[in-house]
Design a protein around this nucleic acid. Sequence first.
DNA 1: CTGAAAGCGCTAACAG
DNA 2: CTGTTAGCGCTTTCAG
Lengths: 339, 339
Amino acid sequence: MKKTTIHDIARELDVTFSTVARALNDHPAISVATKAAVLETAKRLNYQQNKLASSLRSGRTNVIGIIVPSLDTSFFSSVVHGIERVMNENGYSMLLYQTGESLAQEQKGIETFLQSRVDGIISSVSSEEKGLAFYGQICKRQVPLLFFDRAIQNLPVPSVTINDYQAGFVATEHLIKQGYKHIAHLTSDQNLTIFNERFRGYRDALAQYGLELNENRIFKGRLSLEFGKSSLQQLLGQHGPLDAIFAAEDYTAMGALQMLLERGIKVPEQVGVVGFANEAFGEFVTPSLSTVDQQTIKMGEETARLFLKLIANKDYYGTTPEHIVLDPILISRRSSQLK
Amino acid sequence: MKKTTIHDIARELDVTFSTVARALNDHPAISVATKAAVLETAKRLNYQQNKLASSLRSGRTNVIGIIVPSLDTSFFSSVVHGIERVMNENGYSMLLYQTGESLAQEQKGIETFLQSRVDGIISSVSSEEKGLAFYGQICKRQVPLLFFDRAIQNLPVPSVTINDYQAGFVATEHLIKQGYKHIAHLTSDQNLTIFNERFRGYRDALAQYGLELNENRIFKGRLSLEFGKSSLQQLLGQHGPLDAIFAAEDYTAMGALQMLLERGIKVPEQVGVVGFANEAFGEFVTPSLSTVDQQTIKMGEETARLFLKLIANKDYYGTTPEHIVLDPILISRRSSQLK
DNA sequence: CTGAAAGCGCTAACAG
DNA sequence: CTGTTAGCGCTTTCAG
């Protein structure tokens, strides 16, 4: 069964195909009569516009590419959810690519997007230094680019992130204000700004409240339940005092929490715990887990909106890039409430 | 900056553009020398193939469209994760569409996909009866179609699902074997086969073990924490006996669990609870939540693999549709362990 | 208000 | 091994 084209409709109505094209695009200079006729026959013949042809000709695809580390993460899937909804409302489709934190995949994704002539790329990078090269290429090609959550700092590209420094600060400050004094930090060994910033916030909060930063209480690894557990095992093996944990991610915090409970250590009475990301389980566990909310859906929506705003005025790369920084929201639950 | 095309490369090397095209496509009948030269110049000129043009000409896009209710759900985002990974490994890109369980959106998504000339559509439908019309259209257009999790029963379309009947059965049977006798069921008011099947399993398990089905213990609503809570409130208000809950979804089970604990009712000692979907929080809550695992990632991978297998032999619509049915896995945790 | 004509960048059959 | 040629289905001037 051949697909019907504007030529088929034209033949049917004895007009030229360009008249049909105009009618379908609701061109002003077409009589209401022919428009109606065209629309009717289009429907009757089951016409579906071929976007490949129209995009090839017009140079616009109304498709944007999205790159994320993985969708099997509530954070990213939630942000993508937000992006898709807003972009969709504005007539865009989304091509999706997961990198699994692999640079080769990221490269491949960008290549595919460029070849597919997407109208823009929205990305959360896997590695900041190493990605510089190929993201630079996108800029040179003048393809609109936007980062969310994880941005490459020394690239003049707009971004939507949360204030990770502040997040690290308020999480730590919260623990301090509750009366905890010996606060460990579990963070990622990935060299990403988001984690460095959370750490900076942690460090500065300690300093501001006159608490000492103890290197032995800082653990870096692949964030996960297991990492939280093993870190706690080590921490509890040390002689130094310890009365709180600030983990840069909730599963890690959960691992810490579990190890504490296993050892019969009372949370929050003896040790307080704060996580990061506001995963769904946090509010249901016992004791409920304090955390930092990253406003995922809002981040997605803001990302989409900023993107739409920026591609609205022609020269995307003409103006200085705008950076939207969302405020993190501290969620204080039982696991850190000493008072 | 104009994009470079095969013509630019051809001019540079003083060959025809078709030689260039062949070289780039690794055509056998091209000398190694010219191939190398073409590849070199392509790199130097920053050439990116225009997939729009190639797809328009060849009739294949290597893009498939995916339709899901929402990505802001661990179930669907996890399945999509699995699909994307496998399809990606096989050279396909994914266009994504969220329906928000809205039929109009679903219709729009399909239309967009058809217009984009995707090589296939993978979908989890929002409403089975109402979707019949436009999914029928896809079949008529001979576009490969595949359902996962939620399929339209009376459409000859291949699918990957889990055995929801069996899932409902084993969950209920598990409760019965633990010694519970008065088992309520909380399910969706959406008229979807998956929920009807879980209910059938529940009903048959009761029957098989000689327990009576009590209509007063069956609640239908929009699955959510709140629905779980309110249902329990009502259930506890009734005089009839009640010693277990089987909820068709984990958040609902969690709501039930919370309400029970609020009322000082001991779980699992007085009332047992089993949920559905194996959400991340289940293993961390207290008491940990028994549930049914749906093998989300495997479902995604199987979906992709079946799809790839089916489009490999030419006439997708020639053979009788294959239905892969995955086994649900009962995960027995504290909330239902009486013994 | 409609028609004619050119071309977006590529694939693929046919020649040589 | 390479060139010629004809479109894929649409948008978009330029005419009338």
